[in-house]
Amino acid sequence: MNYYLGVDVGSVSTDIVVIDDSETVVDKLYLKTAGRPVDAIKSGMALLKQHLGDIPISGVGTTGSGRQLADVVVGADVVKNEITSHGIAALKYCPKAKTVFEIGGQDSKIIILRDGIIVDFAMNTVCAAGTGSFLDRQASRMNIPIEEFGDRTLKSSMAVRIAGRCAVFAESDMIHKQQLGYSQDDIINGLCDALVRNYLSNVGKGKEILPPIVFQGGVAANKGMKAAFERELGYEIYVPAYYDVMGAIGAAMMAKTESGRKKSTNFYGFDMVDFDYTTKSFECSGCFNMCEIVEIYVNGNIGARWGGRCGKWSTGKNVAL
């Protein structure tokens, strides 16, 4: 049996999955990135090794905003953007999907699929309202564990109208409503409605939203958000079982295709758990561009360098192991 690894390093969570030849998920991890992506990947890989032993990994795919870094840390065969990864994974679990809502820690995306291919997409631009980070912040402000945040809406009988145009205004409006005496459940319910309106008018603007609709990303755990989408659109929303690691699954699926094609893998092996990774950054003074160069050292050797415009610093990825 061959196994394939998918690593999705996002702003808030680092997700790792292992799939087998039949693309069945063998193991999945959802870890907090906590501002230290390299540590998150290392501890994730250590956990996997503990769970599964030293299984043979035949291909590795990385995605998410930390995909390049993840590539340096584990050695990837495919480094893909998160839109393609999420689209591919959604099609795996819902082959007829026409729309994908993906809401993560910092990003929210909409992916439009027709006949099994991505035909259009959009990402949030300047607004963080409706993303996981904002919900996290509101949950901790209201002293409710984020895991229970969405369930509270089920106890609500009405949705309080919250201004959801902007995260800052949404928060002050929530506080205003709380001071008027509305119940927490109704406020959270109203917040979900506001965020859905915000998502549809910002990210979903001008897109043709047709069912079946797949809702994935960390925020899909929030039952209130799912219900609010259903109320607003009038369609049933499908949340796949592995909604929180779909990006990683997509990356693993692409790794399977790629490593099958070239019949080898760049994976460093589980030994990488004990590797020493350090990063340094500096501003190049070679010209007026003043590029910020990042260097990543693996066991004391230069592993990768990027950030330069002229190519002087880009050694590419050349980990000497």
Binding site: N81, I83, T84, I117, D120, F121
Partner: peptide, 29 residues
């Protein structure tokens, strides 16, 4: 793509990559 002094390069690259992927798959099919 909207540009201003606050445009972040990594989000920009992600969009370009996804767009190019999409066009590639579209052309193949």
């Amino acid at each position: 793509l909207v540009l201003d002094e606050l445009t972040g390069e990594s989000g920009y690259i992600t969009r370009l990559e996804a767009f190019v992927d999409m066009l590639g798959i579209r052309k193949e099919t």
